[in-house]
């Protein structure tokens, strides 16, 4: 007999992971393709780098709004934009 998941337990984590990934790309307020969603034992962790602190805040706001019951932690950095200190020579 096939065992069906109880609807009350919510969607499997893998679908949540996929949904968050697509949400971050397809929501016009975010449009980030470079964020990785990783399942850990206690939470989903968002990794990646964005161009401004504002964008990092938008990502966290969007995910917590859409998935209020999913514990999410973030390790998203803002990419440095300083002048280079080295060059590469290509003979």
């Amino acid at each position: 007999m096939t065992h069906h998941r109880d609807i009350d337990t919510g969607p499997p984590d893998e679908y949540v992971e996929a949904e968050i990934q697509r949400l971050l790309v397809e929501d016009p307020a975010v449009a980030e393709q470079g964020i990785t969603v990783i399942r850990r034992e206690r939470a989903l962790v968002l990794y990646g780098e964005v161009e401004s602190p504002h964008r990092r805040e938008e990502i966290l706001r969007l995910v917590s709004e859409r998935f209020p019951d999913v514990p999410v932690t973030s390790d998203i950095g803002v990419i440095r934009a300083q002048a280079p200190t080295e060059i590469e020579q290509l003979p």
Partner: peptide, 10 residues
């Protein structure tokens, strides 16, 4: 992770 990379080609 910087504003741009620089390549000296020659």
């Amino acid at each position: 992770k910087q504003a741009y990379s620089v390549f000296h080609v020659g």
